[in-house]
C-alpha cells in the first residue's frame, strides 16, 4: 500500500481545511497576494474542488505599489474559467496620495493593505478570508489557529483563541463576525518550494535570478521597478543578478543577489542560506511585536 510522505500529508490537511471553509461558511474568499504561497494555495484549491470550479472568489488587495511583473501574473488569471478574481484598491488612500516614500512604510501598509483589506471584506460581506500565512514565518503566526476568529471590527484576540482539536474546526460565527483561515499553517518555506517543484506550479518570474536594475538603501537592494522610485542625489541604478525570496510592495521588498534561475537552484540556495525569508521585509522590524499588533488591528 502507498505510504504518504510529509508533503502528501500536508497537502491532504490543506485540502481538508479548504473544503471545510467552502462547506460551512456562507461567503468565503481566498486572499490572493500573487506570491509563491498564494500560488500553492490556489493549486491546492483547484485540487480540492476538482473537477468543479473553485467555489469562492480570489481577492487581491492592490496597494498600487506591487511589482509590475506581479500584476501581469495576476491579470493572467482573469482568463481562467476556474477562478473568479476580484481586485480591491483603497481609493481613499489613492486620493490622499498615500505611498511608501511620502508617508513611510508603516502608514502605507496600514492604509493600503490593512484598511484596504477591511474595506473589501466589509464591501463584499465575506465571512471567511482564506490566507496563505504559515506558522514558521513569524512568532505570533506560530500561535495562531487554523480557523482564526475575528470580531465584527476584524480584531484578533490572541489571548482568547478557541481551542482547536483534531481536525474539527469550529466554524460558527455571529452576523458581522468573520474568520481568517490558514490552510498552509503547518507548511515551512522548504515545504512550499518542494511542493512547487513536485507539482510544477507556476510562480512569478521575480523569484528567479535575472539582471535587474537596483539601488542599495539601508543595506536593502531595492528594485527600480518604475519611475516612482525617487533617486537620492548621486544614486544610480545598477544592474545586478538578483531575485526575491518574498514579494510585496516593491519599495519595501529587498532583493538578494543570486544566480538561482530554476526551482532546484532556489532550493539549493535556500538550504545554504543563513537568513530568514522575512528579513527583506521592512514591516517586521519596527518593534518586536509589530506583526502581532498589526494582526490585532486586522492585518492578515
Amino acid at each position: 500500500m502507498k505510504t504518504l510522505t510529509h508533503l502528501d500529508r500536508l497537502e491532504a490537511e490543506s485540502i481538508h481545511i479548504l473544503r471545510e471553509v467552502a462547506a460551512s461558511m456562507q461567503n468565503p474568499v481566498m486572499m490572493y497576494s500573487i506570491g509563491k504561497d498564494s500560488s500553492v494555495l490556489l493549486h491546492l484549491a483547484r485540487k480540492a474542488f476538482y473537477p468543479g470550479p473553485i467555489p469562492f472568489p480570489l481577492l487581491h488587495v492592490d496597494t498600487t505599489w506591487k511589482f509590475r511583473e506581479m500584476i501581469a501574473f495576476r491579470d493572467a488569471l482573469k482568463d481562467d474559467p476556474q477562478t473568479d478574481l476580484l481586485v480591491h484598491i483603497n481609493q481613499e488612500g489613492v486620493e490622499q496620495g498615500i505611498g511608501p516614500f511620502t508617508h513611510g512604510s508603516s502608514l502605507h501598509t496600514d492604509v493600503m493593505k490593512t484598511q484596504g483589506l477591511k474595506q473589501a471584506l466589509d464591501k463584499y460581506k465575506f465571512d471567511a478570508a482564506i490566507g496563505g500565512a504559515r506558522r514558521d514565518e513569524e512568532k505570533s503566526r506560530a500561535k495562531e489557529r487554523i480557523f482564526s476568529f475575528r470580531s465584527a471590527q476584524h480584531r484578533w484576540d490572541p489571548k482568547n483563541q478557541r481551542p482547536e482539536l483534531w481536525s474539527l474546526y469550529n466554524t460558527r460565527i455571529k452576523p458581522g463576525e468573520s474568520v481568517r483561515v490558514f490552510p498552509i499553517s503547518n507548511w515551512t518555506e522548504l515545504d512550499i518550494w518542494q511542493y512547487i517543484y513536485q507539482e510544477n506550479i507556476d510562480i512569478v518570474p521575480l523569484y528567479f535570478a535575472a539582471e535587474r536594475p537596483v539601488v542599495e538603501r539601508d543595506g536593502i537592494l531595492v528594485l527600480v521597478d518604475d519611475d516612482r522610485l525617487p533617486l537620492e542625489p548621486g544614486e544610480e541604478p545598477m544592474m545586478k543578478q538578483v531575485r526575491f525570496r518574498t514579494l510585496g510592495c516593491y519599495p519595501l521588498t529587498g532583493a538578494v543577489e543570486s544566480s538561482a534561475s530554476t526551482i532546484t537552484e532556489i532550493i539549493e540556495e535556500m538550504l545554504r542560506t543563513t537568513t530568514s525569508e522575512r528579513e527583506g521585509r521592512a514591516i517586521d522590524k519596527d518593534a518586536p511585536a509589530s506583526m502581532e499588533m498589526k494582526k490585532q488591528e486586522g492585518y492578515f
Binding site: 513569524e138 512568532k139 505570533s140 503566526r141 506560530a142 500561535k143 490572541p158 489571548k159 518586536p288 511585536a289 502581532e292 499588533m293
Partner: peptide
C-alpha cells in the same frame, strides 16, 4: 523567547 510569540507571553 524564540517560541513565546505573543507580547504578553514575553
Amino acid at each position: 523567547l524564540l517560541v513565546d510569540g505573543l507580547a504578553a507571553e514575553r
